[in-house]
């Protein structure tokens, strides 16, 4: 990623405008909450997506935020990234207290990646059936029935 940066209200975003990436990294849960509060105050008023990336031994949890009211900020999909070590139930703080629109998105991330959002008002499964027994289907180690394919080199 090209290393450009942009500062919004004292927070430095790693940006790649051509690819629509505006990223800020949170070091831990407390920093995340602090960042989120400041971003909310700066005008990011809704959460567009909550998701995670399986990085092997770690898990990156991502919140994509944007703005409906602030014309300047509404042009970007900013993302907050928090990298945590992977375990069966990863615990990160919830941002539903700051952006209520993260509610269902965090529920989905919970059932797909096994990220437990501490303080979420309603941490239940959403999409998967009640009798589903597998663990965290969106992680890369979820067993798949694979059929081989070929690619022209």
């Amino acid at each position: 990623m090209t290393a450009a940066s942009r500062v919004i209200t004292g927070i430095t975003f790693t940006t790649d405008e051509a690819k629509g990436i505006f990223e800020v990294e949170a070091s831990d849960g407390a920093h995340l909450l602090d960042l989120a509060t400041r971003l909310k105050a700066a005008g990011f008023d809704h959460c567009l997506s909550v998701t995670a990336e399986d990085l092997g031994d770690r898990l990156a949890v991502l919140w994509h935020i944007s703005s409906y009211t602030n014309r300047e900020l509404s042009g970007m999909n900013a993302q907050i990234r928090l990298v945590v070590s992977k375990s069966d139930n990863v615990e990160v703080p919830t941002l539903t207290g700051i952006w209520e629109s993260a509610n269902f998105l965090e529920r989905e991330t919970y059932e797909m990646f096994g990220v437990v959002f501490k303080g979420h008002p309603d941490m239940r499964r959403l999409l998967l059936p009640d009798d589903f027994t597998g663990k965290w289907p969106m992680r890369k180690d979820f067993p798949l029935k694979k059929t081989p394919w070929r690619v022209q080199k």
């Binding site: 790649d16 690819k19 629509g20 990436i21 944007s66 999909n77 690619v151 022209q152 080199k153």
Partner: peptide, 14 residues
Amino acid sequence: MASMRPAAGRSTAS
């Protein structure tokens, strides 16, 4: 089209 491998990176689209 069948073999494209974008360079490592990330992008968003709205």
